[in-house]
Write a protein that binds this DNA or RNA. Structure first.
Length: 457
RNA sequence: UCGCCCGUGGGGUAACAGUAGCCCACCGGAUUGUUAAUCCGCGAAGCCUUGGUGCGAAUCCAAGCGGGCGAGCCA
């Protein structure tokens, strides 16, 4: 007999003589002469109700002792439910107990704190919330590939071990086979690669090389930052999507970012309805309305200079003063996106002093063609720019940032041979997930999060 | 890294410096087509670590370890 997914059984339109379900017991309620067993197999947040009669041969020995968390396999008849909570249920002909759960199974039939669930990351996928989160994570990863593939973008696997540091996008994890003494003695030439290497903090520079050949490309892979960041929206290991487009300026870059966010939100609304409904009930009551708003309404777009003026004119007593030439603080970003505009906002053309060397200088000589896409509740979800394609300017920027031209020779080469205007951005996958699910901590949208002081499992 | 807050059975919480209580889970019993089932049970299970103050510390002080929130860095 073929296995049926719980999701399909719950959507059934007619009874069926024989079905097989395999899954884990969420709860068991004993009645006189039989038991109700709710089984979840991860296909959806809901479970299917099984009626296990006391006449089953293993009722007294096994079924009666089933606890939350047990793994079972049930065959039986799918019938219209006599109870209220569901349209169909299974009357069991057999209940095979693969493995009961211990008396100390930590997940209860109630809401647990997210902190506790993090400490049992190996079991939390069986909690409703995490089932929902990781189904959405899977769906959005798929939707991202579809989004780009359907638009002719080529998926490029940029290296995870790298010797270039992408201009200090963050502190890097050293990758080495040297022992502590050799490392301390600086014997880099004896290291595995003959020089210091690190885990990537961005695939952008390598991505540019492929954009300057295949036109439109994207990367989607793990990224590592050794920053000692202890916040709800930073992790040491996270996934990033980095599209790069040749023959594209900042305008096109911002258009793509906005189109992509809208597309992904729409995809989740359409394909993860049950999971989003769960988040709406237990995480954020306003979630669905906000996602529909993001899908349907245009984003705001303001220059950095305009943003500064808006913040100044707000009369808000910000903790950090609003000053041209300074980075926008979290409180400033929050004001723009949560209060002033109440929708996602793209801020563009930042002062060149606060942005990296590879961003294209604007004609005003003061700003670079950078953009950040800010969303309510999270802040920056996308950061990108048009890249400096003029050799002399780029070389000058490298020098000004104190970066060796030799190390970036291959990057400068792109400007020597067939240089084109090009642009791209980075999207934090986990931040997107936080935005779509309403989950407030990045540690709860990563299967096994890595943050300072925590690399368990 | 900085600031604020918090560490009590397996989970969630309460207790003025003087007998550690409640809810959930677990165990045992009863009821019931149940829905995070209900009822009964003097059934089992606990004060982060170290040091200090006090006759007496879960409670006050200090340090350490762990956690949460906010900030910085960013995605």
């Amino acid at each position: 007999m073929d296995r049926s997914r719980v999701k399909d059984l719950l959507a059934a339109e007619a009874p069926r003589d024989a079905v097989l379900v395999q899954g884990w017991v969420r709860t068991k309620r004993d009645a006189k002469g039989f038991s109700f067993i709710e089984i979840n197999d991860g296909s959806t947040v809901k479970g299917v109700q099984v009626i296990a009669d006391a006449s089953l041969p293993n009722y007294d020995t096994e079924i009666h002792h089933l606890r939350t968390g047990a793994a079972v396999e049930v065959t039986g008849e799918l019938v219209a439910s006599r109870g209220g909570g569901q349209s169909f249920e299974i009357v069991a002909k057999s209940v095979l107990v693969h493995g009961n759960a211990g008396e100390d199974f930590p997940l209860q039939k109630k809401g647990h704190s997210l902190e506790f669930l993090r400490s049992i990351a190996h079991l939390r996928p069986r909690a409703n919330l995490f089932g929902c989160v990781f189904r959405v994570r899977s769906r959005l990863a798929y939707a991202i590939h579809r989004f780009f593939q359907e638009r002719g973008f080529v998926h490029v696997h940029t290296p995870i071990i790298t010797a270039s540091d992408c201009e200090g996008a963050g502190e890097m994890f050293r990758v080495t086979t040297l022992d502590g003494a050799a490392l301390a003695a600086g014997k880099d030439a004896e290291d595995f690669f003959g020089k210091p290497t690190y885990l990537t903090v961005s695939g952008q520079l390598e991505g540019e090389t492929f954009a300057c050949a295949l036109s439109n490309i994207y990367t989607f892979g793990p990224t590592f930052r050794a920053e000692n960041s202890n916040t709800s929206r930073h992790a040491a290991e996270f996934w990033m999507i980095e599209p790069e487009m040749a023959f594209c300026d900042l305008e096109g870059d911002m258009d793509l970012a906005e189109t992509m966010i809208k597309h992904l939100v729409a995809d989740a609304l359409e394909n993860c309805a049950d999971d989003l409904e769960f988040f709406g009930r237990f995480v954020d009551k306003e979630l669905r309305a906000r996602l529909e708003f993001v899908r349907d309404r245009p984003f705001e777009r303001v220059s950095y200079t305009e943003a500064v003026e808006i913040l100044r004119a707000s009369g808000r007593p910000f903790e950090f003063p609003v000053e041209y030439g300074h980075n926008l603080q979290s409180e400033h970003e929050r004001y723009l996106t949560e209060e002033r505009f109440q929708c996602p906002v793209t801020v563009y053309n930042y002062p060149k002093e606060i942005k990296p060397f590879y961003m294209r200088q604007n004609d005003d000589d003061k700003t670079v063609a950078a953009m950040d896409l800010l969303v309510p509740g999270i802040g920056e979800i996308v950061g990108g720019s048009q890249r400096e394609e003029r050799l002399d300017r780029l070389a000058g920027n490298l020098a000004r940032h104190g970066l060796g031209e030799a190390e970036y020779g291959w990057y400068l080469d792109l400007r020597r041979h067939g240089s084109v205007p090009h642009a791209g951005f980075g999207l934090g996958f986990e931040r997107l997930l936080m935005f779509v699910t309403g989950v407030a901590n990045i540690r709860d949208v990563i299967p096994f999060p890595r943050v300072p002081g925590w690399a368990e499992f």
